[in-house]
Amino acid sequence: MIRLSAFADEISADLEEQIAVLKQEGIHYIELRSVWNTNVLHLSDEQLATIKQRLEANNLHVAAIGSPIGKVPVTAPFEEHMYQFERALIVARRMETPYIRIFSFYPPENEHERYRSEILQRLRSLADRAQEQGITLLHENEKLIYGDTIARNVDLLSTLEHPHFRAVLDPANYLECKQVPFPDAYTAIKPWLAYVHVKDVTHDGTLVVAGEGEANWPALLEQLRTDGYDGFFALEPHLAAAGQYQGFSGAALFRKASQSFQHLLKTMHWEYR
């Protein structure tokens, strides 16, 4: 059965408000990206323990770690980034999730081909290390990273062909890169698809709730169901702000995004948890 999750820091920086809204919306999973205005990789062991205890007490589980790994220039030292990645692996194990969301580095403008080999080498190192820990990396097609377009994303996925390096489908991100999320992107990355992010954008770049933009969510959902998708749909609406490292909606707008997406699922009678 498909499951709903959410980047709960879109609701509030406060953990208790995040939990309250998720419970009101009937969402049982969280994408752990930040709490108390602190990025997930900078949370202390004590803070992680508190988060885990409060989530478990409210029947909530961590679907994925929303890490910023790979969201740095490819020219930055890799050893320092690997140190951060080790922390991401520790956090994933402590929060009992098999997934870490990552990116594929920022190449200098118009120098994608020059840095392709370096990026592939870095991603393979990350994926190999993740495999050792039983963790799967979820690559998000974020704007301006190497794998932001359909062609470059497929290049990464097919060249690596790594069981612990899988694809996120983020339709709005593809639209922001002038790509067609459905059917083009979906069809291209389908062999590696493991996760879906839920947000939408209009032709003028305004972020809106799923179904009100250009992502063609109803058709995408129908195809996903036909193809047997049974993973997560992670709400990441960015309705109030969209920054480099995280977006924000606030409680009211997050509820609107949640209810709009759940309405799409209910309309097509697709059961979810």
Rank of each mutant, 00 (worst) to 15 (best):
D9Y: 10
Q244F: 10
L60H: 01
E109T: 12
I2A: 00
S117P: 00
W36F: 10
D200C: 06
L156W: 06
Y195H: 15
Q259R: 15
I2P: 12
M82T: 08
D9I: 06
G211H: 05
A167S: 15
F254V: 10
F103P: 00
H139F: 12
A8G: 09
Q259M: 10
R116I: 04
T159W: 12
G250K: 04
N141C: 08
P107G: 07
E222D: 09
A185M: 09
T97W: 05
A88W: 06
N39H: 13
V198Y: 01
Q133P: 01
P77Y: 07
Y174R: 01
H61I: 15
L156K: 02
V168G: 08
A185T: 10
K23A: 10
G211P: 06
S125E: 09
A64I: 14
H263N: 11
S104T: 09
C177M: 15
P77E: 12
Q133S: 14
P98G: 07
A241W: 11
I69Q: 04
A252L: 10
R122I: 08
A13I: 08
E25H: 04
Q24W: 00
V91Q: 03
I19T: 02
Y83E: 13
P77T: 09
Q47I: 03
E17A: 12
M1Y: 05
L264M: 10
A88K: 01
G243V: 10
F7K: 03
A210R: 00
E16S: 15
T97H: 06
L265A: 06
A127W: 01
K190M: 11
D230M: 10
P191K: 07
Q18D: 06
K23L: 14
G70F: 06
L123P: 02
D148A: 03
D128N: 15
G205R: 07
M1E: 06
L264K: 09
G213E: 12
F248W: 09
S125K: 14
N216L: 13
K143P: 00
L43W: 12
H197V: 14
P73V: 13
E212V: 04
Y195T: 04
E142H: 13
Y229C: 13
Y174H: 06
V21L: 14
E56P: 01
C177F: 04
L224A: 05
E142P: 02
G228Y: 15
E16A: 14
L15S: 04
M268T: 09
I90Q: 12
G147S: 12
P191V: 15
P107E: 05
I11M: 11
V209H: 03
L207I: 08
V168T: 09
G134T: 11
F103A: 00
A20D: 07
R116W: 15
H203F: 10
F7Q: 03
D9S: 11
G26C: 11
I30Y: 00
L221K: 00
G243Y: 03
F182G: 00
W36V: 04
L22S: 01
P73E: 14
Y229Q: 11
R101S: 08
A215E: 03
E176A: 04
H164S: 15
L4V: 11
I19E: 02
D184S: 13
N141R: 06
V196C: 05
P68D: 13
N153L: 11
R114Y: 13
E271I: 14
G250I: 08
L239D: 02
I2T: 03
Q223R: 13
I145N: 02
D227N: 15
Q262W: 10
